[in-house]
Every structure is written in structure tokens, then in C-alpha cells.
Amino acid sequence: MRILYLLIPMALGVVGVALWGFIWAVRSGQFDDLEGPAHRILMDDDDPRIPRYRDRADDDKPLNG
């Protein structure tokens, strides 16, 4: 059972990393808006009709535009 001397401090290390990760997430504002990102992921960002993406998709013809 002496392995506990190694395993438990390792577990403590993992907890420390988790805590650091959470605090980093709070600091970088990831908890500021808990609703927006869920919707944002569903919106198309790479539509060829958006001017910024038009160059990339010059050959694609818009379906109904």
C-alpha cells in the first residue's frame, strides 16, 4: 500500500491543475456569457456570400442568390 504515498500526491497535483484551469477560465471571461456560445456554434461562419469568404469560394455558386 506504500504506492499511496505516490498516488495521492499525484491526485493532489491533478486537482491543482483542474483548479488552475478553472480560475484561468474565469479570468479569461469564459464564464461571462453562458448563453451566447451555445447559439453561436450553430451559425454558419463560412458562407461564401459573406464578403470575407468570397475569395476563398469563388467557384461555388450561391444556391439561391
Partner: peptide, 20 residues
Amino acid sequence: KRERAVALRRLAVAGLGSMQ
């Protein structure tokens, strides 16, 4: 914003600590 961030940090410390 600061109040919220501090509260979240305390919650994280207490949550992780209590689980372990």
C-alpha cells in the same frame, strides 16, 4: 464582474476541495 469572478473562484475551490 469582480464579485462574480471571486464567487466563482471560491465555488471552484470549495467544490474541488469537497470532492477530494
